[in-house]
Design a protein around this nucleic acid. Structure first.
Length: 104
DNA sequence: AGCCTGACAGATA
DNA sequence: GTATCTGCCAGGC
């Protein structure tokens, strides 16, 4: 079980993702500098309700909630999809990383 | 220790 | 394009 501090790091990173953009689990892990994609997944599974969880997707662009609420929200934010079905986000265009030079 | 599981990722076939 | 496998990190049994 990750420390509370780790949980906070992950959640704060997710909170910074602007509408219309997304981050992969691995991206979040890289940003917080510890753990891995699966740890981020753990955090989201247990504390995701408090943050814009739908902006965290798999590296291949598939949202966790396939064809469900995530896709609906992402579409309404203008996130580009590779296919009309909304199966996969266009990561090339929608991928985002926090501005390291301007933390907080 | 050994094996299994998971909101994952990358490589390979 | 899909399907599998292996690696990854942390935890549960």
């Amino acid at each position: 079980m990750p420390s509370e501090e780790y949980v906070e790091l992950v959640l704060s990173a997710v909170e910074r993702i602007p509408p219309g953009k997304v981050m992969a689990y691995g991206d979040v892990a890289e940003y917080v500098g510890q753990g891995g994609p699966r740890q981020v997944g753990w955090v989201m599974a247990h504390h995701g309700g408090a943050v814009p969880w739908w902006r965290v997707v798999r590296a291949d662009g598939r949202p966790h909630d396939k064809a469900g609420e995530a896709v609906r929200r992402l579409r309404s934010e203008g996130v580009p999809f590779r296919d009309p079905d909304g199966e996969r986000v266009d990561m090339r265009a929608a991928r985002w990383m926090p501005d390291l030079s301007r933390p907080r």
